[in-house]
Amino acid sequence: MSSNNVSDNQANQDAVQEGPNQAGKLTGSVRHGVVPAAGRGTRFLPATKAVPKEMLPIVDRPAIEVVVEEATNAGLDDLLFITAAQKQAIEDHFDAAPDLELALRESNKTKLLESIERYKHYTRIHSIRQGHPQGLGHAVYQAHNHVGNNPFAVLLPDDLMHPEDPVLQKMIAVREQLGGSVVALLEVTPQQATAYGSAAVTNIPLASNGLDNVEGLSEGDVFRLDKIVEKPPIDEVLSEYASVGRFVLDPKVFEILETLPPGRGGEIQLTDSFQRLIETPENQGGGVTGVVIRGRRFDTGDKLGYLEALVQMGLEHEELGADFRAFLKGLDL
């Protein structure tokens, strides 16, 4: 599937290689994005029995659209969904609906028409099937033919980032300055760290590394990753920082994922590939940097996190926010 009248074959032809990997850097900006969206959404059953979890609404648009908008605002011009059976609704949402568009146009329902035509202004979208799911690392590896020897972003759709902190844009800027790979870091408690990739880190000063002009970065926002472990027991948590939801990766990761053995849970873990990247020399595409998330993040793969996103986005909704706020204030809590 491909929206904006760009076929997957055209996209593969257009995926021009951005130069050889030298000192962990590639020429050109990060153009490609990958969105793993093949999960079953079992934590949201029965709601997700027939509806992809990525299509659950955040007020009046599906959660996946918020992620696509973020990718577009970050400057990505090619986005690949890794999907599975029963996920056709995701592809349909970012495609034309001629009959509906015509009906709205003839009824002069301009705002509604604009809302379903937003796909025209988003980055180009394509999709492939993961097949038999074998973990997040396996899902990301499915993008290797599409992305080629280019750096790329990975956006996990369960993580919604509030636009007040354009963390992906900052991560791309850090990658372009330092090379290697970049992960988003979240400050967590030791108990929370057991659910993520726990990272041992060393602070990277901004000025001496050419990062002082990156908009939105402050001292203490950027770290070198020295070690990372997927979902450690609480007594093996490495620090107060965990990797979550947004990654900008050197294509070296595809070579690693190709032969990476299953890890925790018998699945190919993307976090395990980060440890391999940490151990890889910088001139071979290695090295991993972390950028701390300073804005609001919502874990919409969790029921409580999803409710928090609904409330927060509802309060900020242009049309409904004021009335919704008044409603909440009137509740007898």
Rank of each mutant, 00 (worst) to 15 (best):
V140M: 11
V244D: 07
L156F: 15
L156E: 15
A38S: 14
I268L: 05
I256V: 04
V35L: 07
D77C: 03
D159F: 11
D99A: 15
G330A: 05
V237M: 02
D14C: 06
V244F: 11
L45P: 03
N150C: 05
G135Q: 01
G19L: 01
Q284V: 07
A74R: 06
K49Y: 12
Q177S: 11
N9R: 10
Y241M: 11
V6S: 13
E215A: 15
L168I: 00
E176L: 14
P157A: 06
H162R: 06
K109C: 10
E176G: 10
G290F: 06
L310Y: 06
P57Y: 05
Q10V: 09
G135A: 03
N108M: 06
A103D: 03
V201I: 09
Y306V: 00
A96H: 13
P281D: 01
T280S: 01
I268M: 05
A199W: 11
V167Y: 02
A37Y: 02
D250A: 12
V174K: 06
L155W: 03
K231G: 02
T42S: 13
A23L: 14
D77Q: 06
G245D: 03
I293W: 09
V188G: 06
K87Y: 12
E65D: 13
I268Q: 05
E187S: 11
I268N: 04
I278R: 04
L100R: 14
L185K: 00
G197C: 05
P46D: 00
E106S: 07
R175E: 04
T259N: 14
N21P: 06
D158Q: 08
G33H: 12
D250K: 09
F274I: 08
A74Y: 04
